[in-house]
């Protein structure tokens, strides 16, 4: 399987914040979710990849080519959605399009028109009058209308209601049906990913915590609940994180089998991505 994006050794200091040796790769034909709490470094990573902020060190390769050397060629194949629609609010959608479109050599006007129609957007409407959901859709239209092979999105779903988020996920799945397409998007709403993601990358405090297949992740980790009297230091070490009350404990672990043999009365459940994320960043 080819990698559409390879980030290696990325470092960036930004005020008091730092990205520390960020490495990851995005496989082709996959939706990769980039998760982490606010301030973990998601936006800075994405901006560094796109060259919006100069990086201190590291390389970014897209489609096998170096981003620094082939920047325009690569950007021509990437569709971007920045959070809350990065637009000149006083323009109409049609005017905004007329500024963005000529930058792309593969701009497809028919695709643009049919997308606008499908999403119920009126090109003559002023951007400042659009709702959050409409803005996100318009961002998507711009990103989808130039035959991009990779979509990179920064928090596209933040502030949207569940119905629109669901529509958004379906649009992504539709996009993925064509061969050779990939999506990378950051979010702190991990439930978005339960349904659509193939890969999950977790970043915390400027560092990559893990990079895993979503299903493998959900198969490996279990929520284990049981009797706190049965917990000993040895068992405790098998947990990623654990919460205890007088009546029970709830923990997240990839050693469910060992714990089962150590404790008599336990329940195991399948976790959501959020449980795993919190297990990694909040448990210690």
């Amino acid at each position: 399987m080819n990698n559409v994006l390879e980030v290696s050794g990325l470092n960036k200091s930004y005020g008091t914040f730092q990205l520390k040796d960020v490495n990851f790769t995005l496989p082709e034909n996959c939706i990769t979710g980039f998760i982490g709490i606010n301030g973990a470094g998601k936006t800075t990573t994405i901006k560094s990849i796109l060259g919006l902020v100069p990086k201190d060190s590291g390389t970014v390769k897209a489609f096998g080519k170096d981003m620094g050397k082939y920047e325009r060629e690569i950007k021509n194949r990437i569709g971007i959605v920045l959070d809350e629609g990065a637009f000149y609010e006083e323009l109409t959608m049609s005017e905004m399009k007329s500024i963005v479109a000529p930058a792309y050599s593969r701009w497809n006007e028919n695709e643009y028109r049919s997308c606008m129609e499908r999403f119920d957007l009126n090109p003559q409407q002023k951007i400042s009058t659009l709702s959050k959901g409409m803005r996100m859709k318009f961002s998507l239209v711009l990103a989808l209308s130039h035959e991009a092979d990779l979509l990179i999105m920064d928090e596209p779903t933040s502030g949207l209601d569940p119905l629109i988020r669901n529509q958004f996920m379906n649009i992504l799945l539709e996009f993925m049906k064509k061969e050779g397409k990939s999506v990378f998007f950051s979010t702190h709403i991990t439930s978005d990913l339960d349904k659509v993601a193939d890969m999950i990358i977790l970043i915390n405090d400027g560092q990559i915590v893990f990079e895993e297949e979503k299903d493998a992740l959900l198969d490996t980790y279990k929520i284990v609940k049981g009797n706190p009297q049965e917990l000993f230091d040895k068992t405790r070490k098998l947990f990623l994180s654990i919460q205890e009350t007088e009546y029970s404990f709830t923990g997240i672990t990839k050693n469910a089998v060992e714990i089962k043999s150590a404790c008599k009365n336990i329940l195991t459940e399948k976790p959501a991505i959020e449980d795993i994320m919190l297990g990694f960043i909040g448990g210690k």
């Binding site: 796109l50 920047e71 609010e89 500024i99």
Partner: peptide, 17 residues
């Protein structure tokens, strides 16, 4: 206008401009 919408400039710079 540019100062008010810095992200729009960012968007243009993510395009092949």
């Amino acid at each position: 206008a540019e100062a008010k919408y810095p992200k729009a400039t960012a968007l243009l710079c993510t395009a092949p401009y």
